[in-house]
Simulated assay, not measured.
Amino acid sequence: MAKPVVAENERRRRRPTKSGEVLSERLIVDTALRMLREHGNAGLTVRRLGTALGADPSTLYRYFRGIDDLTLAIGDVLIGRALEGWRARGDWRADLRDLGVRVHGAYLAHPQAAVLTASRVTGRAHEIAADETVLGVLRNAGFPDADAVRIYHAFIDQSLAFAALDAASLALPEAARRADERVWRATYARLPADTHPHIAATAPLLVARMNDSAYPAALDMLLDSAAWQLRSLRGTSGS
Rank of each mutant, 00 (worst) to 15 (best):
W92G: 11
V115A: 10
L70W: 00
R65I: 09
R177M: 01
E10C: 11
V29M: 12
A52Y: 01
T17Y: 01
T122S: 13
A179N: 04
P216M: 10
T31V: 09
P57Q: 00
G238H: 00
A52F: 01
A168N: 12
A179P: 00
V103L: 15
T51C: 06
P173N: 13
N41L: 13
L99D: 04
V207S: 05
D224R: 05
V77N: 11
R209K: 15
M35S: 04
Q112V: 00
E181W: 13
V207Q: 10
G20P: 06
R124P: 07
L72R: 03
G123S: 02
A179S: 05
E25I: 03
L78T: 05
R178K: 14
I156A: 14
A217H: 11
R177W: 12
P204T: 04
M221E: 08
L70H: 00
A164V: 08
A141D: 01
G105V: 15
A118S: 05
S213C: 08
R231K: 11
L222Q: 12
A175D: 13
R182W: 03
L165I: 06
L219S: 10
L60G: 11
A146G: 06
F143M: 06
A171H: 08
R34I: 02
R185V: 13
D56S: 06
D131M: 07
A82F: 02
L165H: 14
N211A: 14
